[in-house]
Amino acid sequence: MERAIRFYKNAKHEWYADIPEWGGAIEDLQMVEGADELLNWIAAAENECTLLMADEPIENAEILDLVYAREENLGGGGDYLLETFRKEFKNHKIWLCHVTEFVFKQLPEKIYFKEINKY
């Protein structure tokens, strides 16, 4: 499954995913625990970016590997590792909450992503 997701910074410089069909709290869409740092790398000085994300390989994509699926009492979702980013070793840990399961209908073993719609 492939999905383009827009991410944006609010006035407090906090990152959020733009998922219109999400029926839960807006706080659930905030990107924290490493995901915010990754979005800062991708967007550089911009306040938004759009990523093509998939649970199957896509050409020229970065890869997040699932390391640990969290139980609900630990926030749900999964802890992922971004070993390299733009061919540079990072070993960057990221937590993606249960919204990931909402988007992909599961917690993918690997998430492939790349920036799209760069002007």
Rank of each mutant, 00 (worst) to 15 (best):
K105S: 11
M53Y: 08
L81A: 03
W22E: 00
P57D: 08
L38M: 15
F104G: 11
G76S: 03
D28Q: 05
G24D: 04
D18C: 01
E27A: 10
W22L: 02
P20N: 04
I116E: 06
P20C: 11
W15N: 09
E72T: 09
E37V: 06
M1C: 09
E59Q: 06
D28H: 05
F7Q: 03
V103G: 04
E33T: 10
N10Y: 15
K9F: 11
N10M: 10
V32T: 01
D65V: 15
G78L: 03
K12V: 07
V67I: 14
H13A: 08
A44M: 13
R86G: 05
Y119W: 14
M53G: 09
A25P: 02
L51F: 03
K93T: 08
K93V: 03
I5Q: 00
D55V: 01
Y112K: 11
V32W: 00
I111K: 05
F104K: 13
E72N: 06
A43G: 08
E48R: 06
Q30A: 05
N40L: 05
Y80T: 09
P57H: 05
A35K: 00
A11G: 06
P20H: 03
G34W: 12
E37D: 11
M1W: 04
P108S: 02
A35S: 00
A69D: 13
P20D: 15
I19W: 08
C49I: 10
E83D: 08
E33Q: 11
A45L: 09
E27H: 15
A69C: 14
Y8N: 12
E88R: 10
P57I: 12
G34A: 04
D36H: 10
G24S: 01
D55A: 15
I94G: 06
A54K: 07
E83V: 10
I42Q: 09
N10S: 06
I111S: 00
A69H: 09
M1Q: 09
I42V: 14
L81Q: 06
A11S: 08
A61L: 12
L64C: 00
G23V: 14
Q106A: 11
F89R: 12
D28A: 02
D18N: 03
N40C: 01
A44N: 08
I58S: 05
Y112M: 12
E59P: 15
K90I: 04
T50H: 05
V99F: 07
N117H: 11
E72L: 15
G75A: 02
A69G: 04
K12T: 02
A11Q: 12
C49K: 14
T100F: 01
F85Y: 15
E109M: 02
R6F: 09
E14A: 00
L81S: 09
V32N: 00
G23M: 05
L74N: 02
E48I: 12
F113P: 01
T100G: 04
I63C: 07
K87G: 13
A11N: 07
N73W: 12
G24T: 01
E101V: 02
A11R: 07
E2Y: 04
L74F: 15
F104L: 03
K9V: 00
G78M: 06
K9M: 10
F85R: 15
D28W: 04
Y8T: 11
N73T: 02
W95V: 13
I42Y: 08
E21H: 07
I58L: 07
R6I: 12
K87N: 10
L64T: 01
A69M: 06
W41C: 00
E14T: 06
D36P: 02
M31L: 07
E62T: 11
K90Y: 05
A25C: 02
K110R: 14
I42C: 03
L39I: 08
G34P: 07
